[in-house]
Design a binder for these strands. Sequence first.
DNA 1: TACTAAAATGATTATTTTAGTCAACAATTC
DNA 2: GAATTGTTGACTAAAATAATCATTTTAGTA
Lengths: 147, 147
Amino acid sequence: MKLSTRGRYGVRALLDLALHSCEGTVLLRDIARRQEISLPYLEHVITPLVAAGLMKTTRGPRGGVLLLKSPAEIKLSEVIGFLEGSIAPVDCVDNPDVCRRSAFCVTRDIWGEVKEAVHQVLDSITLQDLVERQREKGQTGTGMYYI
Amino acid sequence: MKLSTRGRYGVRALLDLALHSCEGTVLLRDIARRQEISLPYLEHVITPLVAAGLMKTTRGPRGGVLLLKSPAEIKLSEVIGFLEGSIAPVDCVDNPDVCRRSAFCVTRDIWGEVKEAVHQVLDSITLQDLVERQREKGQTGTGMYYI
DNA sequence: TACTAAAATGATTATTTTAGTCAACAATTC
DNA sequence: GAATTGTTGACTAAAATAATCATTTTAGTA
């Protein structure tokens, strides 16, 4: 039941981007530095988010990453979906055909309930919520006043 | 966010055992056959459940597995805990020290909420609930009337 | 145009985890 | 003591993870 680095880093990168969006385009290198993620790896991590249309990238001098949607319109459930695929704890929840027991398997029902519970949490939180929470906690950790 | 086979097989084995507990001791071989899990692998899967005192095993002829606690007293949250460890989607939720960002990281708070949501589901369901649900669905799939 | 800065992409790799198998051993019953 | 059943530990193949690196493409600028 662990999240991979794609999900963890991706959400952090998106939050970092939102926190610095006032400056317009943000350098991937700066996100990588503030979030302590290696730049080459971060490039791979954000690929699905770019493909999903959440952000736009520009190459060359003055290039960088730009948020395309308003943070208030970006739900964490979508983000995790793009980064990790389905949050179902077992495949049969989404695709009953992977197991011929699906039709009468009560444990499958349980995993469906778990999926639903996780979805409800992530579906109720937007990137804007994260931004506000972070501002309440202070900008520490976004690299601004970092020791 | 996927469960490993330990969690999936372990819960199914426990449910199978509960469904056949009227017969007293149940052969691991029979559980393996009904649940379509290889016997040698199932032996490894149930090890943590035996260690946790949920079931007892007896070797030799007329041996097998016996449920030690009443199904109504066995919560899925415990079972998954024994089989998979913490259900926290990231390690820092349980152990803040693994990351120095923990104190001011709002994404960590989110993963904590996810953990809590999953826990609430699994904590509210007992093995007895699974048994009853399975009986409502019919014994199919427990190997009894299997085609 | 040439140069430089930035992201994109694809190949490669090391490590870890997963999902088992197998063989030898221990205990229990008949 | 022979057969049966579970226990344990070693081992392994395959997949996923978490990267790194080199090359390419794009965009701005001197």
